[in-house]
Amino acid sequence: MSDAAASAPPAARTAASSPVAEAWRTLRRRPDTVIAAVVLLFFAVMAAFPRLFTSTSPRTCPIREARTAPQGWGGDHPLGTDALGCDVLATLVHGVRPSLLLAVVVVGISLLIGVTLGLLAGYYLGWVDYLVSRAVEVFLVVPLLLAALLVLSLFKGVDLGAGTFNVILLPAVVLILFGWMPYARYVRASTLEAKNLDYVTAARSLGASDVRIMTRHVLPNAIGTVTALLPTSVAGVISAEAVLSFLGIGVRPPATSWGIQIEQGSQWVLGGAPHILLAPLACLVATVLALVVLGDALRDALDPRLAA
């Protein structure tokens, strides 16, 4: 709910002209960035190789063992069991993949759509711009959550199978459908700015094709600001997934994700089993925190004028 504000300054800043290497050097010098990167790497490994972290299956849920308190390392249930008797650690470890995959897929595809449309609109103006701007407006007016509700309830009855990708497909489609607009706005604004820069005019007068000008000269200029947005957007999608799960329209049980775990755990926070909530919540907060820190650092690195 909060990135729209963060991601919509009135006009895009001109991307820093400093080379990537410079940015990398700045990044490395900041300890918070390094910690954030380590945290993300940890969860990425967990998503890729869940078996490294637990040998218990998240689908083995003897109901009579429900809400066992955490037993510490070495116990059968290091982080205890949840309300259905499933091992919390196993669910957590296996829940990383859908959560992260959803975030990456959503941000990636929204970015692609947003950049393409923004670039075309800013470059050609005229009717293309008119169409894109109207589309942006329409999608901005419909609140994301309402749209999510509609679309998700629309396809709720559709059977997609149970693979990791199928499980996240519906939330992904919705979040993409209503998540590409900020990128389009940004890129359109920076394209407008970059289009009239001297070297672009020069390239055009030398007879470069539109595609070449767009990809070689305009895009690199416009992409800087958008890149800085990415970590924050990923964080936003992870949080959004938790909210959708809370409303019962996210990933479908018995498949699992952090959002579902938090939703189920939040009921038990007072019922003598706070660990069901705290474990996934800690992971979610850590990941989001790491991503935002990284995003801040990236923005500062790409836009030296703002560096602290």
Partner: peptide, 20 residues
Amino acid sequence: TAIGNSIEEVLGIPYELDIL
């Protein structure tokens, strides 16, 4: 979900919830 888990555990029949 608990019913499904119980069936899966006892009979080994994997299940899927179809929530409408």
